[in-house]
Design a protein around this nucleic acid. Structure first.
Lengths: 181, 181
DNA sequence: GACGTAGTATATCAAATTGATATATAGCAA
DNA sequence: TTGCTATATATCAATTTGATATACTACGTC
């Protein structure tokens, strides 16, 4: 699945600018299972506009740059539906954290601790984002299923990390400083 | 982190050919948190050879093509150690399965079921690979930690999927045909 | 015995994608 | 007034993917 289909999927929920699509995959609803950068999003939108899969509405905003709000067209919805009926490719998971963890005996203990805490922070942020979305989802919807999947997986990771502290020779929980932030 | 560092890490455990590195990230020990293709592995090895980070031992095999067994050099180990002390990038997770699940009301029920069963199969295969490695790992090692992380996350996903069958309107478990395979 | 498929092994390349950077404007803080 | 953050679009070199080519063995099957 390419970035075009991905954008089409996001636009199927609501019109959005390239910038907003980036935010959605970076921090928003789609952030825990999708990746895309500006360098692929903008060309995808330009191409789909030429192909008639999306339309633009240019909004001149006071004090802000021109905003191009893209909407999905009927042809776009058909193209999306087609893509949705192809068998999905296998999940891809890349973790530099786990790669580094493999060599834990070759790094300074203080680096290991910093990296471990960084991972914990990242996972907790993910979980917070997932839980924020949680209330606004109708049970039984695709959204609710995906949200629940993310919740299950990230929770399990956090729990495992917490249980592994001692076996990695790390000090007990650093008295939740995240409560202060 | 680039493919060069990734190869260096794998070679730090044992000498390997490009083909064997690919297998390691595809099916082996590294498969659940690393991705790399031939098109990046072979050029990486060639470049690192020129840079003196690895050395080659060419093995003429009877009845098989020439095999180039790459080993990490001292310079390579230093380069790896340096990379290991950089802060890791955030995890990246891409799931076309979850993307499709988002639009579950727009696809045929039979497609949804096929995709769901495909994901289950994939997850169960992952878990099997993880459990296979499990015994040969010394407790407290980096390997054991990473293996445990994978086990925790994949198990949670499988459990969530199983619990979600009914809410997605899918029939009960298709009487484990995997036992027959 | 020919034919297809799977496994071992290296290598290349067009196309897709990333990650960084450039441009521009507003608001807020030091 | 200098720097930082946020909004917003856009480009591009470098990296990476995914597909394909080549070549030989082995195994099944028709």
């Amino acid at each position: 699945m390419n970035v075009r289909t991905l954008c089409l999927g996001i636009l199927a929920f609501d019109e959005a600018s390239g910038y907003e699509i980036k935010k959605a995959v970076e921090d928003g609803m789609f952030s825990h299972f999708i990746e895309a950068s500006y360098g692929s999003i903008y060309p995808a939108l330009t191409q789909m506009l030429a192909d008639g899969l999306v339309s633009v509405r240019e909004q001149a905003q006071e004090g802000k740059p021109l905003k191009k709000a893209y909407s999905i067209t009927e042809a776009g919805r058909r193209a999306l539906k087609n893509s949705l009926h192809e068998l999905p490719q296998q999940d891809k998971f890349k973790s530099e954290f786990l790669f580094q963890a493999l060599f834990r005996d070759q790094v300074d203990p203080q680096h290991l601790e910093a990296v471990f805490n960084g991972q914990m922070e990242y996972l907790c942020d993910e979980l917070a984002t997932i839980e924020e979305c949680r209330q606004s989802l109708e049970p039984g919807s695709g959204h609710a299923f995906v949200n629940g999947y993310g919740h299950a997986v990230v929770s399990a990771a956090i729990q495992y990390m917490e249980e592994s502290r001692s076996s990695l020779g790390l000090p007990r929980k650093p008295i939740s400083s995240d409560a202060a932030e």
